[in-house]
Design a protein around this nucleic acid. Structure first.
Length: 938
RNA sequence: GGGUCUGUAGCUCAGGUGGUUAGAGCGCACGCCUGAUAAGCGUGAGGUCAGUAGUUCAAGUCUACUCAGACCCA
């Protein structure tokens, strides 16, 4: 009889395959999750537990997801899944931002091709219907994309800013600010298309190269020049400004200087004077270039001073009987011009802002056709661009034109009518930051929020210290209309909170389209008359609200879903990209303060942007774009998730082929670890086969103590949103503690001892607990793989791993003495391994089992080794024999010899007992016993 | 130009309050094993801590500036 000894070796099963095949298996698993509604099941199971609320910042519903949005959603999923496994009732309601310009312009372009009357702009209601359908379509696609990432949430009830109740809430938000007294109407410069006679957004501008008049204009000083510098006393001084839009000069109200730049007053020939000289002020750094341009051959510098010396002085307008205020601001640069910046607050954004600081009106004597109003002397009724040459002529006649030339540059044009645009102050709606103390409230609230990373607090604070009033009106169609009416007779605007709330109720039933469909009278009481003039006829205000107001009220959905009370922050955490300090974190804070008096969040976490290998942004032109879809198809969503965990998300994160290759390596290491665990447990039932903790081998207990420690670190990591620390801890544990130490040592015990022997069962007991812990700790990150391993480990009896909780950290199992002992033991092991490697390099051994290790040590080291035992040490070193000799002193000496005896065919150890059992002449005594025990149970 | 942030081995990251030869995992090289096998194990080589100048007995760690990159604003 020949007995096949190979069959008596307990090799691992193949229940969990090494190859993940994620592109195929993930969609199937996803389908099962959705069919079983594991999100709903989980919420039900956790009902009554403390709630944890992550509130989703709504992505814009206009495309497929990219790496940035995927990264964002995966981070959110890490948080939700881990909080749930930490025992919380963790809700996640995703959302979508629907209104706004990108969708509107997209559908307008599509519509323009289709409309019978080419060139005619589509009506708002047509735009709105198309835009809504467009958003619906993209929400469907994005829902699928996000779910494919393994993100669990209430996808069937994702909130959308265009749903009727949400639109109503947006309008109610405005009403609340009106009631609070924060809303006012005022002028603000916007890009204006003369051709279309309408306001334009940044995205609607096309830049074209044109040639404009470039003029250098003298503004005579109106105040005493000695106040600037004593050397200038009694002189005729003028400030020289530069502009390429002479038509804005009638609206000039000031001149801006850089406070820290040096300026000079130079004596130079006046343009029209026959030998007459004048004193001009320009930036010192620009003087050489300007002197050459102006032909100032022997200009004499009379004085040098900082721009701040000019602050508060005044000049005279070159032809109008008006003062021009001298101001300082940090927007002034020395890259072009004279360092003295012509400032017309009605015709420029920076001009507007600095004008506001100095109390200047956004003066704009230009009507919607681009024509000067009657109040403009010399040029009333003229179109601004046509007036340019005459303005230059007038300046020349008055002797205030220092220099003029043609100037080619790039200038914005209206994308639709292709005409050059102008900046023009128009009536807009604002929320004041100070009227009701919003700014102060915000600064206080910011201090109470936890910011992650911590510098977020300062960034946010600076934003509120500096920000101007919030301009909330837009001259667009796709959004929530500002529900106000204007008296047709006298122009008075009626915008009361009561009226808005009434309209909001209509919106809740019919959607905001009602404003466009119904006549104004439908919203007004039958007896309405204008309180100012008594007339009855009104027209509807057609501006819509800034979409930041839309998303700013999104926390309301937490209240509507019963997840938050009005008396507390609506969410525990917001997590978005760092651009949202200015965006969503900002608008949400203002809206929540206005409506609830507190911040909508307790903690704000920010993540960086996804960049390429050189940490530069991805763009089509650079050709460095990586699509999440491609990654999912080649490696699976778990690969993307693992990458997300591996990087420091608080900073910008790099991704590249190499990085993904490394992540693939890490994935395989983790998966192989799970395979080893699960596949060596195929014949193990923890209910009936487990060995008590105290009866385990010491190395088993060490592995469990290490696992316990891992649970502590990983739980803490998840609690602190430190996913990278979690990733590192898990990967290092698998690589070092498990793969290279415990698993390697354990192979002999698992494979060669009888299947049901105490030795093997002890090993499996530890493996089972390690597997159970490790899989759960990995689950938030490797959402699919962990679930697959869990299913195999629990034979499909425990439900999805995402319903489970993390293993607890057991303080009683910390075993500090054992850990300390093992630190020493493992350091001895590493000395032995080095010695073995030398023998191998010398060609004296191959496998370590060909070796015998002779240890000589004294003191503590000897005691430790002696206590652990030479046989146990031989297994720890994976050699055939170990001897131990006591010496003087602490030093450890290691010598390696060839092992005694011959190689056992079954366990591969060298042993002198091989052949002792006549029935099995090729194997050692230990193997013979196990073969009899396992395969010949007497 | 302003606000905020980042720059440590090929890659991803550790390196409280400044103090011995700067660590980990992966990758790489070489070797072993062939009973975790599209696996496993071992040993080893990799760093002027972006640069410059300072402060200090002593700096990856503090200060200033420079360079490169990111977000927001202008």
């Amino acid at each position: 009889m020949t007995f096949d000894l190979k069959k008596t070796v307990n090799l691992p099963s193949k229940d969990l395959p090494m190859k993940g095949n994620l592109a195929q298996t993930e969609p199937q698993r996803l389908k099962r999750w959705l069919e079983a509604d594991i999100y709903g099941t989980l919420r039900t199971a956790r009902a009554g537990r403390p709630k944890f609320r992550l509130h989703d910042g709504p992505p814009y519903a206009n495309g497929r997801i990219h790496l940035g949005t995927a990264f964002n959603k995966i981070l959110k999923d890490f948080i939700v899944k881990s909080r749930s496994m930490l025992g919380f009732d963790a809700a996640y309601i995703p959302g979508y931002d629907c209104h706004g310009l990108p969708i509107e312009t997209k559908v307008v372009k599509e519509l323009e091709g289709k409309l019978p009357n080419k060139g005619l702009a589509p009506t708002p209601i047509i735009i709105r219907r198309e835009a809504r359908a467009f958003a619906e379509r993209h929400i469907r696609d994005m829902n699928r994309d996000f779910q494919r990432l393994g993100v669990l949430g209430d996808w069937d009830h994702a909130y959308r800013t265009m749903s009727y109740d949400y639109e109503a809430d947006i309008l109610r938000t405005l009403a609340a600010f009106v009631r609070q007294g924060s809303v006012y109407r005022g002028l603000r410069p916007v890009h204006w298309s003369i051709g279309a006679q309408s306001a334009l957004a940044e995205a609607e501008l096309e830049y074209k190269d044109v040639v404009d008049p470039s003029v250098y204009v003298a503004f005579p000083l109106a105040t005493d020049p000695a106040a600037i510098a004593p050397e200038l006393a009694g002189r005729e001084v003028a400030v020289v400004i530069w502009t390429t839009t002479p038509w804005t000069l009638p609206a000039n109200l000031g001149i801006s200087f850089g406070p820290d730049f040096d300026y000079v007053a130079v004596e130079a020939p006046a343009p029209s004077g026959q030998g007459r000289h004048r004193t001009y002020i320009v930036a010192a750094k620009l003087l050489p270039a300007l002197a050459q341009k102006f032909g100032w051959t022997n200009a004499r510098v009379l004085a040098t001073f900082k721009g701040s010396a000019l602050d508060g002085q005044a000049a005279r307008h070159p032809w109008l009987n008006r003062e021009s205020k001298l101001m300082v601001g940090h927007h002034v640069t020395l890259e072009a011009g004279t360092g003295a910046v012509h400032t017309a607050p009605g015709h420029g954004m920076e001009d507007f802002l600095i004008g506001k600081q100095y109390g200047l009106e956004p003066y704009c004597p230009v009507d919607q056709r681009g024509v000067y109003t009657d109040e403009v002397a010399h040029f009333a009724g003229r179109q601004v661009f046509e007036a340019n040459p005459d303005i230059v002529k007038l300046l020349r006649e008055r002797g205030e034109l220092v220099f003029a030339e043609d100037y080619p540059h790039s200038y914005p044009h209206c994308w639709r009518t292709k005409t050059p645009t102008i900046f023009r102050a128009t009536p807009q709606w604002f929320i004041s930051m100070d009227a009701a103390g919003l700014r102060q409230q915000a600064l206080e609230a910011i201090g109470k929020v936890q910011w992650l990373p911590p510098w977020g607090e300062e960034r946010m604070r600076n934003m509120f210290v500096n920000r101007g009033d919030w301009c909330i009106s837009r001259q667009r169609a796709w959004g929530v209309p500002i529900a106000a009416v204007r008296c047709t007779a006298c122009g008075t605007v009626h915008a009361t909170a009561d009226f808005m709330e009434h309209v909001a109720d209509v919106f809740e039933r019919e959607g905001a389209d009602a404003w466009y469909i119904r006549p104004a009278t439908d919203f007004l009481p039958p007896d309405f008359t204008c309180g100012h003039c008594g007339a009855r006829d009104v027209e509807k205000e057609m501006d819509i609200l800034d979409v930041w107001l839309d998303s700013g009220i999104s926390w309301r959905i937490m209240e509507r879903a019963g997840l938050a009370e009005a008396t507390e922050p609506a969410a525990d955490v917001y997590i978005e990209g760092s651009d949202q300090y200015r965006g969503w974190f900002n608008s949400s804070l203002v809206v929540s303060l206005g409506l609830r008096g507190h911040a909508p969040y307790r903690t704000v976490v920010t993540h960086g942007y996804v960049l390429d290998k050189d940490r530069e942004k991805m763009s089509k032109s650079l050709g460095n774009v990586i699509e999440p879809q491609a990654l999912i198809e080649s490696g699976g969503a778990d690969l993307l998730r693992l990458w997300t965990a591996s990087v420091d998300y608080t900073d910008d994160v790099p991704i590249s082929e190499e990085i993904l290759a490394r992540i693939g390596d890490a994935y395989r290491k983790l998966r192989n670890t799970l395979c080893y665990l699960v596949n060596n447990l195929a014949d193990f039932n923890p209910e009936t086969d487990a060995v008590p903790y105290t009866e385990l081998f010491e190395i088993d207990r060490w592995a469990l103590v290490e696992t316990n420690e891992l649970a502590r670190r990983v739980r803490t990591g998840y609690e602190q949103y430190a996913f990278q620390a979690v990733y590192t801890a898990l990967l290092n544990f698998c690589t070092t503690q498990l793969s290279s130490i415990y698993f390697d040592v354990l192979k002999d015990r698992l494979y060669t001892y009888a299947p049901k022997s105490y030795e093997r069962r002890a090993a499996q007991t530890a493996l089972y607990e390690i597997a159970s812990s490790l899989i759960r700790l990995l689950a938030p990150i490797l959402a699919f793989t962990a679930d697959e391993a869990w299913e195999k480990l629990t034979r499909g009896q425990a439900g999805s791993v995402h319903l489970a909780e993390f293993p607890a950290y057991d303080a009683a199992r910390a075993e500090p003495e054992l850990r300390k002992r093992w630190e020493t033991l493992l350091s001895i092991r590493s000395v032995v391994l080095k010695e073995l490697e030398q023998e191998r390099a010398a060609g004296r051994i191959g496998s370590a089992l060909e070796a015998r290790v002779d240890l000589r040590a004294g003191g503590r080291l000897y005691t430790l080794a002696e206590h652990y035992g030479t046989e146990a040490l031989s297994f720890l070193f994976i050699v055939s024999q170990v001897t131990l000799e006591r010496t003087e002193g602490e030093e450890l000496k290691v010598q390696v010899q060839r092992a005694a005896g011959v190689k056992c065919e079954r366990c591969w150890h060298y042993d002198t007992s091989v052949g002792a059992d006549p029935m099995f002449p090729t194997i050692c005594r230990r193997c013979a016993r196990n073969v009899r025990l396992g395969w010949y149970p007497a």
